[in-house]
């Protein structure tokens, strides 16, 4: 059952070639229902939920499945580090979800979750290959937001 953890490692290494530096889209932190939120889309980009789902699955991009169980039964090996993401859009608003993806430490200072749009200057000892780069591009982040807001269970 166990996959070689090295596969994860190699996936991460390959990733370094994909990401590219781009202008950082600034965001405005607000509050919604007592929780941090980012209501405006990054650089006003329109997200594509289909692509967002691929970002969530892709080991070299979002790799949400590494830590979360998700309603994506066609994929094996969902991680158990974080909470399940079923019904996510019924638990949080779009703005709250965007804030959680951009910078999860806004919610939990001790979280293990990476900031998928953390400013590169806020990383400690960032590897040279990643200098000036965010984890996901602004477009990928918006795609992911567009996908997770579809996770409803009505």
């Amino acid at each position: 059952m166990l996959l070689f953890p090295g596969l994860l490692l190699s996936a991460l290494v390959i990733f370094s070639q994909n990401s590219r530096a781009e202008e950082y889209c600034d965001w405005q932190l607000t509050e919604s229902n007592g929780m941090p939120a980012i209501e405006s889309r990054l650089c006003d980009l329109q997200g594509d939920p289909e692509n967002g789902k691929q970002v969530a699955i892709d080991r070299s991009r979002g790799n949400c499945l590494a830590c979360h169980m998700m309603p994506i039964p066609e994929e094996e090996f969902h991680g158990q580090v974080g909470p399940p993401l079923h019904c996510l859009a019924m638990r949080y608003s779009e703005g709250q979800l965007r804030a959680r993806l951009v910078e999860p430490m806004l919610y939990n200072a001790n979280t293990i979750m990476p900031g998928y749009y953390r400013h590169p200057r806020d990383n400690h000892r960032l590897a040279n290959a990643y200098q000036g780069k965010t984890f996901l591009s602004a477009q990928e982040l918006e795609d992911l937001v567009a996908f997770v807001v579809t996770l409803r269970c009505e």
Partner: peptide, 15 residues
Amino acid sequence: HCHVQYQGIMLRGSK
């Protein structure tokens, strides 16, 4: 994070 807080937990396919 990985080796104290979440040790024993599945990270995708590996423990």
